[in-house]
Design a protein around this nucleic acid. Sequence first.
DNA 1: TTTTTATAGTTGCATTTGCAACTACTACCA
DNA 2: TGGTAGTAGTTGCAAATGCAACTATAAAAA
Lengths: 162, 162
Amino acid sequence: MQLVVSRIVFMDIQLSKQAESAWITLMRTQQLLLIKVEAELKAAGLPPLAWYDVLLELSRDSEAGLRQFEIAQRVLLNKYNLSRLIDRLQNEGLVKRQACDDDGRGNIVKITKKGLQLKQQMWPVYAAAIQNLIADSLNSQQLKSLTELMRLLATPHLTTPA
Amino acid sequence: MQLVVSRIVFMDIQLSKQAESAWITLMRTQQLLLIKVEAELKAAGLPPLAWYDVLLELSRDSEAGLRQFEIAQRVLLNKYNLSRLIDRLQNEGLVKRQACDDDGRGNIVKITKKGLQLKQQMWPVYAAAIQNLIADSLNSQQLKSLTELMRLLATPHLTTPA
DNA sequence: TTTTTATAGTTGCATTTGCAACTACTACCA
DNA sequence: TGGTAGTAGTTGCAAATGCAACTATAAAAA
């Protein structure tokens, strides 16, 4: 006879107060800072951060372009939302879709000159906000520490095991 | 003659790579973890995290209740989205709105028994996810460190000065 | 007191997101 | 080779969000 014991017995979970605090401050602080950045972009008459994220990824491979699914996983968007985000960018002439030779299902997305220009235009506002929101509050050691903690948190979940 | 020099000259911004890394890892990691938690809640047939956030805040003051604007600032929602979130919760019988004696404009939101029950029901799933996503990756010292860093980041922006 | 200004909350409308189903193609398997 | 399962991407529809305008009340100024 085999007993299967669930890894976590819900009723018995004893989550530490430390973990709870870390979680909630992480969620709230990120949200707070994100709202601020979006507000700065809007105040400058610029599109939302998600546009920048995509344009940045595309600009890293501006010659070859990227498959949509690659963009999606880099910016943590699901495929249908990315599909429609690319629609919008394409409608603005910031990116273009091309047929993919290797794979008849997909397409290659490339950034246009106009897309590169917008990215260049957004960066100063974005950078100033980051400076304002992060670099002015944390010293160099703390920035390193934060990055390392985030890396530790993200790593086990980047590729989702069963 | 008085020279007013803008604090940040956009063209000259030299954002450190450290700050940039800290920013991007913070944004991405939080998003990644949030997506995971939402997925766990949904997999358990439970409502989104935002519902829990509101129910939790209300349960802290379950007798007195909270004004909508108080809830809004605690969970970082703007007033119109909170208004409609409360609508949904009210439609499910999880909270109730009452007229506010002190202030004829606003109302007091109180959690119901059913709301408390749902909150109780969501917590084990939520707690397990936090355990999984945070506590398993960071030790006690790191959790403390993360919380402190978040506090440092959030503090200067909690009350927005001119 | 009267007027003005600010705050609390709601709502119509447009945009965006989430969900599920769908097409088209690739990769694996026998 | 043919069949089956999986992946890339799109789309219709419903739900949620953002924006601006609105009502109603409170607070401040005159």
